[in-house]
Design a protein around this nucleic acid. Structure first.
Lengths: 194, 194
DNA sequence: AAAGCTACAATATACGAATTTTGTAATCTG
DNA sequence: CAGATTACAAAATTCGTATATTGTAGCTTT
């Protein structure tokens, strides 16, 4: 019987919550397991029963944060209107979320950036989730689903934390729209020549 | 009458040379004006007659390094064969140079990365030079030259030092080819819908 | 035995003193 | 007097050490 009154799953979720909050408050670089544990009324050692390492907790934080992004995009993908129009909306939303987060939620953003640089599986999984959503949209709109990785690579400048940060002042939406419509036009024109 | 036997221009060039060499030897972060000056038989203060600051010298280093890249790409752009084919070759070359440099010339690469993050004019000028080359090629191949900034943005994942470094193991050329041909097909299909 | 704690070693971070380095000004020299 | 030097202040970096944090093991409690 757990003394915290939480199941293993709940404790992991709570620890992830607390870690995100503390990260937002004190910054990515100053997040301490000791503090997370203390805030939960635990010794830091107790966390090791639920997370194999600090990185594992940070992964959980990033996973949660990316899951919210995927959920928002999933709603756009499943939204009303013609599928082809939703592709542009989806891409714009992807960019807006990235930009908004760089501006207003920089600490988890930095955690993501580190996870990304370290090629953590949580990042790979996120990219795959985006690919799947976009592939679904493309399929629905009558395009070959193989266009999804292609589009994602071409839109990378609008997602990547550092590139987004570098252009945070500019309105890059017109350029993004042009790229999306050019890519869609190109895909429509048929399978690209090898 | 200069005691070094060099004109102002030559001295700047020599200092830039020496700085690149030392940077390659000791690393970007450990480059010291003192050492550059000493290697030229000068006191560090003498450098200030030719460079307004260390950043100014670093800019000269990056400018030189980027000029070599522009020259190689310029040759490709001016090369033989149909213009449309040269666009793909140009993009592949752009990626190969970026990749090769990340692998074999990491220190100036880091200097470029810092200059890029600091939004130094030398980087803006480089981007403009690339845009002009690509615009020329597009024009020659019968495309609207406005496609150049669009293509460059879409190819950013294949140029940006950090993104190139992250995928250094992979062969991304097939994907690059697909993106280029899709974009060209899209541009050919007519001005993208606003 | 499950859930957690205390104790501890290895590692990492923070801090402050000493040293370098950068940048400026006044001075020297051919 | 252009070209360079020495001298010097401000800022940055290094280096040694004290402190904190991470991760592990064995012990305690219910």
């Amino acid at each position: 019987m757990p003394r915290t009154g939480m199941s293993a799953g709940e404790l992991r979720e709570t620890a992830t919550d607390v870690a995100i909050c503390r990260m937002r408050k004190v910054g990515y670089g100053k997040l301490r397991l000791t503090d997370v544990a203390a805030e939960m009324g635990l010794s830091h050692a107790a966390l090791y029963a639920h997370f194999s390492s600090k990185s594992d907790l940070l992964d959980a934080v990033v996973r949660r944060w990316l899951a919210e992004k995927e959920a928002t995009l999933g709603e756009v993908a499943a939204g009303p209107g013609p599928a082809e129009a939703r592709i542009e909306t989806w891409a714009l939303t992807l960019h807006r979320i990235s930009r908004e987060r760089a501006l207003r939620d920089p600490e988890p953003c930095q955690a993501y950036d580190f996870a990304s640089a370290a090629a953590r599986p949580v990042v790979t999984a996120h990219r795959e989730a985006l690919r799947a959503q976009l592939a679904g949209l493309l399929g629905e709109a009558g395009f070959d689903e193989d266009g999804a990785p292609l589009m994602l690579e071409a839109l990378r400048a609008f997602q990547h934390p550092q590139l987004v940060a570098r252009h945070i002042e500019e309105d890059r939406e017109p350029m993004l729209r042009r790229i999306v419509s050019t890519l869609l036009a190109g895909l429509k024109a048929g399978a690209p020549v090898a």
